[in-house]
């Protein structure tokens, strides 16, 4: 029982982290038809800049906000300088975003050195609760809560505001939105920034969870996010949450029972989805 609860919480926490990374990826893809291979770079930048800020100020909440701010700025720069010149050209996009990923992670090494850095949760998030005879680690619950807050905030924006309406419509038919007189390029920029910011948040949240940060962490996690985006359906926000939880849980249970297979199973799922249901398992859920 205790084991199962813990695996559940682990899986949900990992799932939330993947979701935060995948959410931006899926919206950017759905809206702009850009698969951003540099997305993992925002994730790593969020972790490094946030942990650095936390080290300097000792304020974890502020560090979260700082990391998200760094994400916003990076997102804006990336959209303007890297993505915009190659809109509509898939091959150039793929090539350039991957190249940019390389630059982002090398820059991290230039600034903070090539070695792994330690990362700790603040006092108030360390330790665990004892409920009955089940130990629940605080920080993991914290990740789940933050992930849910992010999900519901964005869900609300998508469903209840005009910008959200435009984004949802844009995912379905970008040209038509333009033909109705809406300047969709401006929305692209916004979505890109928010997506990058969520990725940065995810990176910072992961840091104390895994205990160390390293420049390549972005690519490792981005692969999981890609899997989630495919399973959830490209462009589907809710789908990416469901798929992320699925991947997180399957990863956590699998890692416990048959650890060798966990990534393989997720990949297999992605391959099957791509071949038999390329629109994703949850497409159409908005």
């Amino acid at each position: 029982m205790e084991q199962i609860v813990n695996l559940l919480i682990n899986g949900l926490a990992t799932g939330m982290l993947i979701f935060l990374l995948a959410a931006g990826l899926t919206l950017i893809f759905g809206l702009m038809d850009v698969l951003n291979f540099a997305h993992g770079g925002f994730f790593a930048w969020g972790a490094y800049s946030g942990i650095w800020f936390y080290g300097v100020t000792g304020q974890y909440v502020l560090a979260i906000l700082f990391a998200m701010f760094v994400g916003l700025v990076l997102g804006a720069l990336t959209e303007k300088l890297i993505i915009k010149p190659v809109y509509g050209n898939h091959i150039q996009q793929i090539l350039i975003t991957l190249g940019f990923m390389l630059v982002l992670s090398e820059l991290l090494k230039v600034i903070w050195g090539p070695n792994q850095l330690p990362a700790h949760a603040p006092e108030w998030l360390s330790g665990s609760w004892l409920i009955g005879d089940i130990i629940i680690i605080k920080y993991r619950v914290f990740i789940i809560v933050v992930g849910l807050i992010a999900f519901f905030t964005i869900h609300f924006i998508l469903k209840k505001t005009r910008i959200g309406l435009i984004v949802r419509a844009g995912v379905m038919n970008k040209e038509m939105v333009e033909a109705m007189g809406i300047h969709i390029q401006k929305i692209f920029m916004l979505v890109f920034m928010v997506g990058a910011s969520l990725a940065a948040l995810s990176g910072l949240l992961l840091a104390p969870y895994s205990g160390v940060i390293y420049a390549e962490m972005g690519m490792d996690f981005a692969i999981l996010a890609f899997i989630v985006v495919v399973i959830g359906g490209m462009g589907s926000f809710t789908g990416s949450l469901l798929a992320a939880i699925l991947v997180g849980l399957s990863g956590s249970f699998m890692a416990y029972y048959v650890s060798e297979l966990s990534i393989a199973v997720n990949m297999l799922l992605m391959i099957l989805v791509l071949i038999f249901r390329p629109q994703g398992l949850f497409y159409g859920k908005g």
Partner: peptide
Amino acid sequence: SHFFAMLTLAFASL
């Protein structure tokens, strides 16, 4: 192209 790039990335990581 997108999916192909992504899938090959995943295969290599496998």
